[in-house]
Amino acid sequence: MQSVLSAQDLAISFGSNHVLKSVSFEVGQPEILGVIGPNGAGKTVLLNILTGILKPNSGTVHFMGRDIANIKITERVRIGLGRTFQIPRSFENMSTYENILVGGVYGDNIKEKEAGRQAVEIAERIGLSSHINTMAGRLGLLDRKRLEIGIALASRPKLLMLDEVAGGLTESEIADIIKIVKDIKAQGISVIWIEHVLQTMIDGTDRVMCLAEGQNVITGLPQEVMQSKIVNDVYLGVDEDE
């Protein structure tokens, strides 16, 4: 499988706190890579490095074969790195339509007319057609999470990074999100999916990587990773000997 993103030996510290010590991984095209790990393992920090919000102390990131170290946040969106936020950060005083429009006009650099047509299609795909003119601030949690994905999709990403989109959702809502993510992959878009809800990792990803103490401790098929001793030890805090 061809790789869309390749990270080598990423490390970052905040003072004496070494959040990431040496993390390497690849994301195939198209592939859904799940990222799990206990709180403070550096999952969101990793995502912030990939999107350009944080600069790593060392290590490299290649996206579509290109070193993106010196590429600004806004430019990273345009070359195809889309993201969602852990706590939905849609534009509250703008409608669903306008929110998705921002993603198209600025993230994909297309004309507003074209972005408008695309926004209607995306709203339908993510199940927000009936709320297309609703202010984002008035949407419920599931719909705001859908909208987060919609805005990111509007920038026509090649790699979409999801930060705990299933957090706080009910079982049936999680099933909806998994379906949306699988549809995204079916369109040829790769996904990095950070999540605490383990069921989403088993049902919705191709591979899972577990971060712990600033390192990638295991990467493999979802079932294998979830059943591995190392994940039980460092992530779930379960010692098999007990």
Binding site: I73, V77, R78, R89, F91, N93, V102, V105
Partner: peptide, 23 residues
């Protein structure tokens, strides 16, 4: 205008606007 769309996004959440491509 297109400029205003980014401006309104900035008004609501500056960091999120930048993450969506608004310079």
């Amino acid at each position: 205008s297109r400029f205003g769309l980014g401006l309104m996004a900035m008004r609501d959440d500056e960091d999120a606007a930048e993450a969506r491509g608004v310079a």
